[in-house]
Design a protein around this nucleic acid. Structure first.
Length: 862
RNA sequence: GCCCGGAUGGCGGAACUGGUAGACGCAAGGGACUUAAAAUCCCUCGGUCGCAAGACUGUACGAGUUCGAUUCUCGUUCCGGGUACCA
């Protein structure tokens, strides 16, 4: 064997062997326990970056580990291939989104293969293929037919100068990112999925997802945002119509002094009509509706409103409440109308101050009183009811129910539950996505495409950026359709495509049967493999992707396609790989590899020489160009070192600010392992590794044997459950260090040393599969290392007859000593008090207390 | 703004369930081998004071609980993620 570790030849040798032998191909084996390990599939943006390498390496180690543990492991990979970047690239580089996407897939596939990941490539999926999205279209139709999908009008960001719809990401400071024009809001008819029908179910199951991080389920619960409250009906002065509001504070109804409506609330125009305020209100609404309506933006705007000129009547006090249109009221939440109680809600208080509105205290904190005229901030806590007529003196919590019951009796209110979660809007006025399989007919309305016509294939020749609407609308032959219901030949096809989150909401099920042509999924295969036992991906998907996938699984369940409702049993949210962003005045975002750093740390652009601005540290993303191409590392050190380093750098759930210093150490470590074997191959020949009782060993052999078994235990514990590969690798490094330290010890048995070497290779195999396989081959010459069972540790090798006791005086470490393992509390205390060093600190002092934790420590309090 | 996280040596990180802070590695410094270099192997390495033994101090900041807090509670600062059309 070579003296020197040569990564390249070893890695290509084993990758070829695995591919030739189909080592990672799996089929259902009913008598074998399955393990479905899935990493979130990537968007094919061009190149694999370090975030991907980290994610996929983590997954690969788990997959290989579980395989060694005897599971039938499904470990697939594919491409989340529809999306906006393909269209942006098409516009910028004059390519076709499909050509760009497929080229990227080829590049990225070969990069992934080079990392030595254990995927069953026979199951590869690209969501942009008709074979995939036809089933999505099919499901869409089922959902329309079951009333799970519907159409309504809703707003999109619109750039008048580019004649195009903009994603939120494409809006910068309320302006179009391409041309700088101010962005408008445009109302369009769009498709929605009724995810709100499942709000309660999704919420309740959050607490049953024991294998998910609490942070994620908490975020999902907050996102769903269930609140219990009351719906209250208000009479409007001089109008027939009434206004309904949802409030979580019916106890404060006596203090409601004005009303706020969402700007798009249908009553706004109606109420202001013919009043002096009509024009001002119209101007206000028009202005607000040009603004970004995302919750992020809406929450950060200064609260403002416009008086509609109309009043409603507080049903309990008869107070004439002015009705405002307000920018913070959201049409999507509750009823789009908010009853405002300035004394007990800070936002309402600020609003009342700004517009000189009445403040009325109705809840006083226990044992105190509040004055409506001098109040400086809202009191939002619980308390005792005041100025609330018959409810005075009642505890405010109890008053919620009492007032609601009273309203219900009078027929002007009822207990209601409201969710923050909104229905999922899926229409996109874009080209590179799944065509929505619907036909619009003047007489029949929206009619599903007949199943026999599926898939509706995405045409290749649509023009981007020219239409003023959906690119597919530019194609006459595509748009023209015959109504499947009445035969009207002047019907029009829906020209929108679906949100790309739809594809990623069911791909995990399709991996079980990627070539199935008789339906969306093969029930039997899905029943064997699903649900996913371990899902791994970036924490940035904690809400949207994961919630949509949970929802879609419920839809598929209710349509009889699958027999489970939760798709992912365990979830590991991997921290992001982050890096500073670099911007050059002429080239905007620039790649780290396109910049140079001089001695003083100043950074300049290699393309133009201009100084580069070093910006914030954010997650690696193609659009911000703060990405590191793993090829540099792969070329220099190989896949095993790259994998080892990604895992060693930090535990998986933590963010990792990229810095490739340190990779050298991982490369050196592999070299150390290599030489450990290379120098001993001859001595091991014919020797069987020792796995017997520890009691038969003594001296260095016993010591090393203990270390071997402790390492197996440590690595297994770290990998199992926690996935803390960084500490697992540290433990193996320690074992290797011990082996070096015992080099040449006469009392060291060769069979124990061989056990040590084999253990290192077995434990390291999932992390560095190529080099360990190569070394295994030189050692034994038979079988694949990855097919060996994971090593078991021997309990008898771990028992120690002495334990270290540390002694503190007043909590400060002063001394330590060994005691026999079974030493009693009294014995330990006596030894501690008799300790020479301890004596110096306690001499002449009163001992107030002695705390003894057997096997651990003594703390003497003086 | 709101929701969810995070902060430990020059750097990445470790510390079980409240019990020795800094495992393992990088960088740095020193030594061995070599004609020399590379590679390799060995040693030192939070800060201050001290010749040393050692003492004091130290886990973003400020309080608190406790015999004992990196760990628990409250408050603050800064950083990251999400915020419904980036994926």
């Amino acid at each position: 064997m070579e003296d020197k570790y040569l990564a390249d030849s070893i890695e290509s040798k084993w990758q070829k062997k695995w591919a030739d032998e189909g080592s990672f191909r799996v089929v259902e084996v009913p008598e074998k326990e399955k393990y479905y390990l899935l990493e979130m599939f990537p968007y094919p943006s061009g190149n694999i970056h370090m975030g991907h390498v980290r994610n996929y390496t983590i997954g690969d180690v788990v997959a290989r580990y579980k395989k060694m543990r005897g599971f039938n492991v499904l470990h697939p990979m594919g491409w989340d291939a529809f999306g906006m970047p393909a269209e942006n690239a098409a516009i910028d580089n004059n390519t076709h989104p499909a050509a760009w996407t497929y080229a990227n897939i080829d590049t990225m596939r070969s990069q992934l293969k080079r990392i030595g990941l254990s995927y069953d490539w026979d199951r590869e999926i690209a969501t942009c293929t008709p074979e995939y999205y036809r089933w999505e279209q099919w499901l869409f139709i089922q959902m329309v037919e079951k009333g799970m999908a519907y159409r309504k009008e809703s707003y999109v960001n619109w750039c008048e100068s580019c004649h195009t719809v903009l994603a939120n990401e494409q809006v910068e400071d309320d302006c179009c990112w391409r041309c700088g024009e101010t962005v408008q809001q445009k109302k369009l008819w769009q498709w929605f999925f009724r995810i709100t029908d499942y709000a309660d179910d999704l919420l309740v199951h959050c607490d049953k997802l024991g294998g998910w991080p609490d942070s994620v389920t908490t975020m999902q619960k907050n996102w769903i945002g269930k609140s219990v409250g009351s719906e209250v009906v208000f009479e409007v002065d001089g109008h027939e119509e009434t206004l309904s509001v949802f409030t979580t504070r019916p106890d404060t109804l006596f203090g409601a002094t004005f009303m706020c409506l969402a700007p798009e609330h249908p009553m706004v125009a109606q109420l202001s009509k013919g009043t002096d305020e009509e024009e001002a209100v119209a101007r206000f609404v028009a202005r607000i509706l040009t603004q970004d309506r995302s919750s992020k933006a809406v929450e950060s705007y200064e609260k403002e409103g416009a008086f509609t000129g109309a009043y409603c009547i507080n049903p309990l006090t008869g107070f004439k409440m002015p009705i405002y249109a307000a920018n913070f009221a959201l049409m999507e939440y509750g009823t789009g109308a908010v009853m405002s109680v300035p004394a007990h809600d800070q936002r309402d208080f600020d609003f009342a101050q700004k517009y000189g509105l009445t403040v009325q205290v109705v809840v006083a904190p226990e044992g105190a009183s509040l004055d409506s005229d001098t109040l400086t901030e809202a009191y939002t806590g619980p308390g005792v009811m005041v100025h609330s007529d018959r409810f005075d003196g009642m505890e405010s919590g109890a008053a919620k129910d009492a007032i609601t019951d009273y309203l219900e009796e009078k027929g002007i209110g009822k207990k209601t539950i409201s969710f923050r979660l909104r229905d999922w809007g899926v229409s996109r006025q874009r080209y590179w996505g799944t065509p929505i399989p619907m036909i619009h007919c003047d007489t029949c309305g929206a009619v599903p495409v007949p199943e026999s016509d599926l898939p509706i294939v995405l045409p290749e020749d649509a023009q981007l950026l020219e239409s003023g609407g959906s690119p597919l609308g530019t194609l006459d032959y595509f748009t023209k359709a015959t109504c499947p219901k009445c035969g009207n030949t002047h019907a029009r096809r829906d020209t929108d495509t679906m949100d790309t989150f739809v594809e990623s909401s069911w791909y995990f099920a399709r991996y079980c049967c990627p070539d199935y042509t008789d339906g969306m999924v093969d029930k039997e295969k899905v029943a064997y493999w699903m649900p996913v036992d371990q899902y791994i991906g970036g924490v940035e998907h904690a809400i949207l992707h994961l919630l949509y996938s949970r929802y879609f699984t419920r839809v598929m369940h209710d349509l009889g396609l699958v027999d489970f409702v939760e798709p992912f049993t365990r979830l590991l949210t991997q921290g992001m790989v982050t890096k500073e962003t670099l911007t050059c005045p002429t080239h905007k975002w620039v790649l780290p590899s396109d910049t140079e750093r001089d001695g003083d740390g100043a950074v300049s652009c290699k393309l133009c020489g201009e100084p580069v601005d070093v910006g914030r540290v954010i997650k690696m993303s193609k659009s911000k160009k703060n990405v590191i191409d793993p090829n540099t590392l792969l070329n220099r050190y190989g896949a095993d070192t790259t994998r080892l380093f990604c895992l060693f750098a930090a535990p998986p759930e933590k963010d990792l600010e990229w810095n490739d210093e340190g990779v050298e150490g991982c490369f050196k470590f592999i070299g150390r392992v290599w030489r450990l074997v290379a120098g001993r191959v001859a001595s091991f020949s014919g020797v069987e590794a020792y796995t017997g009782p520890a009691g038969e060993l003594s001296g260095k052999s016993r010591e090393l044997y203990t270390k071997i078994n402790a390492t197996i235990k440590k690595v297994t514990d770290d990998v199992e459950g926690k996935f803390h590969f960084n500490t697992a690798i540290s433990a193996v490094m320690e074992l290797v260090n011990s082996m070096y330290a015992m080099n040449g010890e006469a009392s060291l048995r060769v069979d124990v040393m061989k056990r040590a070497v084999e253990t290192v290779l077995l434990l390291l195999n999932p992390v560095a599969p190529h080099v360990t396989e190569e070394l295994w081959e030189t050692l034994s010459g038979t079988g694949l290392l990855m097919d060996q069972p994971w090593p078991e540790f021997r309990e008898d090798a771990l028992v120690s007859d002495e334990v270290l006791i540390v002694v503190q005086v007043n909590g400060k470490l002063r001394s330590k000593f060994n005691v026999p393992a079974g030493a009693s509390k009294d014995e330990i205390q006596a030894l501690a008090l008799a300790d020479e060093v301890v004596g110096k600190f306690i001499e002449g002092k009163d001992i107030r207390k002695v705390i003894v934790i057997p096997g651990k420590l003594v703390n003497i309090v003086i």
